[in-house]
Amino acid sequence: MKQAALAAVLAGVALAGPGLRPAQAATLKATLIAPQDDARLERSRVQRAYLGHPTGPAADGLAVAMEEGRFELDAAGHEIALTTSEAASLEAAKAAAQAAEKAGAAVLITDLPADWTLAVADAVKLPVLNVGAADDRLRQQDCRARLYHLLPSERMRADALAQLLVSRKWSKLLLLTGTTPADQQRALTVQASLKRYGLQVVASKPFKLSADPRERDLANPLLLTGGATYDAVWVVDSDGEFARNMPYRTVLPRPVVGDGGLVAVGWHAQFERYGAPQVARRFAKAHQRPMTAQDWASWMAGKALIALATAQPAGTKAPTAAAWTQTLPKLSLDGSKGTPLSFRAWDGQLRQTLLLTDGQGVIAQAPIEGLLHPSNVLDTLGADAPEKLCKVAR
């Protein structure tokens, strides 16, 4: 949804009939900061619809949440004024955040790369809801006290797949990793998950998509998957083009997981439980496309805004940034995933179930049934409290 369209939807929230809204409605101001000319939404990439990748702007999910929360906001006597700012660089994102804070915003929502997200969090004293960056370092060594994450981390996604592999007794893995820095970093995350769940890498090989004839063997599925005995092939491919072509092309008849074949995501439009079909239908009707994990994250950011606003008694002042900071960790949110969702105290990550999908339907949910945890089974996905590297206090 373009900025003007989002503004129209939000205007509908703010301008609900006079008989429904108190005259002195309090306004909660928020700003979404998104990339200008987002490379993730380049036309050919959107048409390919890689699993785990966005196919539309974060504003779409927010708009659906705002529409759904219209009645609650009316009843509580509050409004949400949500604006969108586009940034072409890290410095532009930082400037947009500072401008939003000066204009009275109480919270920021970011759909930005990791470094840009950190720049925004460091530039203001406002809570920041991250809906675009899955990097684990934002939850670990580069965490910030007022930075919260709606999108599941890479570690959470890797843990979800590792749990399924353990439950199926597919313990021996062939690991194929791309040559980009992002792939190399994500491969380390995968290996941490494999170690956590006692899975074994029997062979690890690099792949590379290249037009150079001398490198064609680095993209040959038969050559890459030969010479080893394994129960499954795990592909680490941040781009997505290589991974999507791996299923059914391995030497041994084995499942493919990771960034192709079976993929762990925060949401899939074919999830058929806990009210999810109704959410997916509302989104598809509003935006003429299936709802993705990134859309779900921005939808949850909107739900968080509504939860805070409606928690205030009618006629009271709108929450301040300080009130947000105190209230966010206490929120219990309904994400249509079958369990209440809350933010972890040690890294600001939203606890949530993950969906394992092949693109046609949802094969399983993680945490896998039967898995145990001392306090909250959702904390088996991602860095648990004893593993935390985040040193800030929330």
Rank of each mutant, 00 (worst) to 15 (best):
K208A: 05
L222A: 14
Q349E: 10
S238A: 14
L174S: 03
M291H: 03
W296Q: 13
V235D: 01
A23S: 12
V377P: 07
K337S: 09
D237P: 01
K29L: 03
L331W: 14
G315H: 10
D159T: 04
V263C: 01
V257D: 01
Q349M: 02
E241I: 03
A243P: 00
A121E: 12
V124D: 02
R214F: 06
F207S: 04
E215S: 11
Q36G: 10
A182L: 11
W116K: 09
K317E: 15
G227A: 10
E79L: 15
R244T: 05
A345H: 13
G240W: 01
V362G: 04
K169D: 07
R45K: 11
L41H: 09
R254M: 08
K208L: 15
L118Y: 12
G69E: 09
A284G: 03
K337E: 08
L252R: 12
A314V: 07
T83C: 11
R244H: 01
P221V: 04
R249H: 14
R70K: 14
L108A: 08
L112N: 10
A364N: 12
P340Y: 07
A49Q: 06
R144S: 04
T27C: 13
L262V: 12
K391W: 03
G19S: 11
T31W: 04
L112H: 06
I33M: 10
D237W: 04
G315R: 12
E72L: 15
D384P: 00
A304R: 02
Q24M: 09
W296G: 04
A105R: 03
Q98C: 03
S89K: 02
L15V: 02
A100W: 05
R394T: 05
D115M: 02
L82I: 15
A63I: 05
D115L: 07
A30Y: 08
G52D: 01
S238P: 02
L224R: 12
G370D: 05
M300K: 04
R43D: 14
L20G: 01
A58Q: 08
Q191D: 13
D295V: 11
L173K: 04
P313F: 11
L90I: 15
P22E: 00
L223G: 13
I363G: 00
L108Q: 05
T225E: 08
Q288P: 00
D212P: 03
P57W: 04
A192S: 07
R273N: 12
Q47A: 15
T84K: 07
V233R: 03
S336R: 15
A30N: 05
L355Q: 08
K169E: 09
Y50A: 09
D217Y: 15
V256D: 08
V201C: 01
Q349H: 03
D259P: 00
T110C: 14
E91T: 07
L252A: 15
A65F: 10
